[in-house]
Computed example of a mutant assay.
Amino acid sequence: MADEKFYYNPATGEVTQGKVESWDNRMGPYDTREEAEHAIAIAKERTRRADALDEADDNWGATPSWEKDEK
């Protein structure tokens, strides 16, 4: 079965159908050519969301007494 998905090559800015480039020059797969053309914007948005989730997960509330600075 042929690979019908689309991929974005960040080195060249080209969109290909199928796994034409090696994995280190390939973002995807995407269902449409239009999605692949916006791969960088999609990746930036996914990173922003993941960073927000990480930040929320890191916020456990008050600092434990053993980590508070003594004066």
Rank of each mutant, 00 (worst) to 15 (best):
Q17I: 05
K5D: 03
W60E: 09
P64L: 14
A52F: 08
T47E: 09
G18A: 10
W66G: 03
Q17S: 07
M1I: 03
E55T: 10
P29E: 05
L53N: 05
F6R: 06
A11K: 12
Q17D: 05
G13Q: 07
P29S: 03
I42P: 00
Y30M: 01
E21Y: 15
T12F: 09
K5L: 03
E34V: 12
D3K: 01
E4F: 08
H38D: 15
I40H: 10
V15Q: 10
G28K: 12
I42K: 04
E35I: 01
K44P: 03
A36D: 15
K5S: 03
Y7S: 00
Q17L: 03
L53K: 12
D57C: 05
I42A: 01
R33K: 15
W60R: 06
A11T: 12
W23H: 13
F6V: 01
A36M: 14
R49I: 03
D58F: 00
A50T: 08
A39D: 12
R48L: 06
I40G: 02
V20M: 15
E67Y: 05
T12W: 07
K68M: 13
N59P: 00
V20L: 13
E37R: 14
E14R: 13
A41T: 00
K68F: 02
A43I: 04
A56M: 06
S22D: 15
D3E: 05
A62I: 07
Y30E: 13
E34C: 02
E21C: 04
R33N: 14
W66V: 01
S65H: 05
G28E: 10
Y8K: 03
T47L: 07
W60M: 05
R33P: 06
M27E: 13
W23S: 15
N59W: 11
Y8F: 14
K19H: 06
E37C: 01
D57L: 07
K19I: 00
E67M: 07
T16M: 02
G18M: 11
Y8H: 12
D24W: 13
W60P: 03
E55W: 04
K68E: 14
T47F: 06
E4Q: 11
A41I: 02
T32I: 01
E34L: 08
S22G: 15
H38N: 15
D54P: 01
E34Q: 14
A11F: 08
R26F: 06
E67D: 11
E67Q: 13
R26I: 05
T63R: 07
T63L: 11
V15C: 04
E14F: 07
L53Y: 06
K71W: 13
N9S: 14
E21G: 00
T12K: 07
T47Q: 13
D69L: 09
A62W: 09
K19P: 04
E14T: 12
T63Y: 05
E35V: 03
A39C: 02
G61I: 00
E21H: 11
A52P: 08
E70W: 10
G18V: 06
M27N: 15
M27G: 02
E4A: 12
R49D: 01
V20R: 13
Y7K: 04
S22W: 08
Q17G: 03
R49H: 02
G18F: 09
H38G: 13
E14W: 08
D57G: 09
P29H: 05
P64G: 05
